[in-house]
Design a protein around this nucleic acid. Structure first.
Length: 261
DNA sequence: ATGACATATGAGATATGA
């Protein structure tokens, strides 16, 4: 079973790119982020024609997350607990029943947090605290769990081509990195690092500006974190770099894992 | 220090992204 995450940077602007990649890669479950549209405006039919069930937690202009799946979704949760007046569409979770058992999957668009010293950075840190609390509760279920998405965190210097360029950025702050680390220390596994160890040069985002792609000036900020029960099933994890060579690409590329059965 | 580049909104310029 293939599970993917991809920040598409507007699903309407990326519809052709997304359909082309889905036809080629044929993942079973796909977590999408930065839809930049409301649920009623999501082009669901195009994905349904490829055999996907479509779950959307949308928002006008900003944010928005979705899960496409070849399995029927159950137990759907929109939004992350812990802050009643948070209206930003950044979290969507569902359970999928397969013949070999269930898998719980969340599509996550963690706040960017820039610029530093503003409410935006405080919101990012609070959101990460809420995610940790929710992940801790989910881990008690002791089931295969995949928390997939754009975490907007560069976990270590190994995850940036030029880490020195990010020291004043919310994505690489010690507070952001520490909170990401607390997710791992709950017992979650970073799928790419589990498979590839300390291999350098594994990036999922390249800025549109200043020839970042051509210079391979990238960062790794899109992650799939696995519960122990999911990590036991992990057989591969890949970054789909070639998607960045599409015409009118997203600035992020998909990351795909394969789980046994 | 700023902008580069891309997207949405809405019809020009601004907000957001990372």
């Amino acid at each position: 079973m293939k599970i993917a995450t991809w920040n598409v940077n507007s699903i309407k602007a990326r519809l052709d790119n997304a359909l082309a990649w889905l036809r080629q890669a044929n993942p079973d479950i796909v977590c999408l982020q930065e839809l930049k549209c409301e649920g009623h405006a999501f082009p669901a039919q195009a994905f349904e024609e490829l055999g996907y069930n479509v779950l959307v937690h949308g928002q006008k202009t900003y944010n928005g997350v979705a899960i496409l799946s070849k399995f029927t979704p159950e137990d759907v949760t929109r939004g992350l607990a812990g802050e009643e007046d948070d209206t930003q569409a950044r979290y969507l979770e569902a359970v999928f029943a397969r013949k070999s058992g269930v898998v719980r999957v969340a599509s996550i668009y963690l706040p960017n947090g820039n610029p530093l010293g503003t409410e935006k950075f405080d919101y990012k840190l609070r959101w990460m605290d809420r995610l940790r609390a929710h992940a801790k509760a989910l881990l008690k279920l002791e089931e295969p769990l995949v928390l997939a998405g754009d975490y907007n965190v560069i976990p270590t210097p190994l995850d940036a081509r030029h880490p020195e360029n990010w020291v004043n950025d919310a994505l690489f702050q010690p507070q952001s990195r520490a909170r990401f680390r607390t997710l791992l220390n709950l017992g979650l596994t970073d799928a790419i690092r589990q498979v590839h160890g300390d291999t350098p040069g594994l990036y999922t985002f390249w800025d549109y500006q200043a020839g970042a792609w051509q210079r391979n000036n990238g960062i790794r900020i899109d992650h799939l974190l696995l519960s122990p029960q999911a990590a036991d099933l992990l057989t591969s994890a890949q970054i789909e770099r070639e998607v960045r060579t599409q015409e009118k690409p997203s600035d992020h590329v998909p990351v795909v894992i394969e789980l046994k059965a």
